[in-house]
C-alpha cells in the first residue's frame, strides 16, 4: 500500500517537474510547480515527517508559489522570445543529462546493498510517542542551536540584501513626509507681500 503511494507520488513529482520546464505558458509552469510540491509533501507524509510536510505546503505552496504567480502575472514579460534559443542547446543538454543519469544509476547499482549501509544510523528518530514537531524542536534549539542561529542570520542578510538592491531614491516621485509637514512653520512657507491696490495682477 505504502509503496504504491510512494511510486504514485514519485511519478507525478518527476513528470510535473518536467512540465515545469517544458510548459509553454509560465502560469502553467507555476501550477505544475505547485503540483510537484504537493507530491513532495505526500512523500514526506509517507516517511512520517508530518511537520516537514506541512512546512513545505505552507511555505512553498502558500507563500513562494503564490508569490511567483503574482510576479508572473503582474510583470509583462514576453516569455516566447526568451525561449527562442532554448532548443538550440537542447540536444547537448539532453545528452549530458542522460549520461549523468546513467552514471548515477550505475553508481547506485554498484552500491553494496543492505539496510545498515544506506542510512546506516538508526532511523528510529521518528517515534510514534513524541510528535514530529516537538522532536524537531528538541534538537533544533539544543543540538543545532548554532546552525539555527546561523540560518537566522542568513535570512537577515537576505532581507538586507533585498532592501539594498531594490530600495532607491527616485528624484521625480512625490512623497509625503509627515514629520516635515508638521515641523514647518509660518515664516518658511508664507510670503506676505504688500501689493498696491490695483496692481495685483
Amino acid at each position: 500500500m505504502v509503496s504504491i503511494f510512494f511510486y504514485l507520488f514519485a511519478f507525478i513529482l518527476i513528470f510535473s517537474s518536467v512540465f515545469v520546464i517544458t510548459a509553454k505558458n509560465p502560469v502553467h509552469s507555476v501550477f505544475f510547480l505547485i503540483l510537484s510540491f504537493f507530491n513532495a509533501t505526500g512523500l514526506f507524509v509517507l516517511m512520517g515527517a508530518e511537520f516537514l510536510a506541512m512546512l513545505l505546503l505552507i511555505v512553498y505552496v502558500g507563500a513562494v508559489a503564490v508569490l511567483f504567480l503574482f510576479v508572473i502575472m503582474m510583470l509583462n514579460i514576453d516569455f516566447k522570445s526568451l525561449r527562442t534559443g532554448i532548443m538550440k542547446n537542447a540536444r547537448l543538454g539532453l545528452i549530458i543529462g542522460v549520461v549523468l543519469l546513467a552514471e548515477i544509476i550505475f553508481s547506485i547499482m554498484g552500491m553494496h546493498y543492505g539496510k545498515d549501509k544506506i542510512l546506516g544510523t538508526n532511523l528510529s528518530v521518528v517515534s510514534n510517542e513524541i510528535e514530529n514537531t516537538r522532536l524537531l524542536g528538541n534538537v533544533l534549539y539544543t543540538d543545532y542551536i548554532y546552525l539555527f542561529q546561523t540560518a537566522g542570520l542568513i535570512l537577515l542578510v537576505a532581507m538586507v540584501g533585498a532592501i539594498v538592491l531594490t530600495h532607491r531614491k527616485r528624484d521625480n516621485v512625490r512623497k509625503q513626509d509627515a514629520t516635515k509637514q508638521v515641523l514647518r512653520n509660518k515664516s518658511e512657507t508664507l510670503n506676505i507681500n504688500d501689493i498696491e491696490i490695483g496692481k495685483g495682477a
Binding site: 549530458i96 549520461v99 549523468l100 552514471e103 553508481s107
Partner: peptide, 8 residues
C-alpha cells in the same frame, strides 16, 4: 560530468 565519467 567529465570528471565523474573519467573516474567512473
Amino acid at each position: 560530468i567529465a570528471i565523474f565519467s573519467w573516474q567512473f
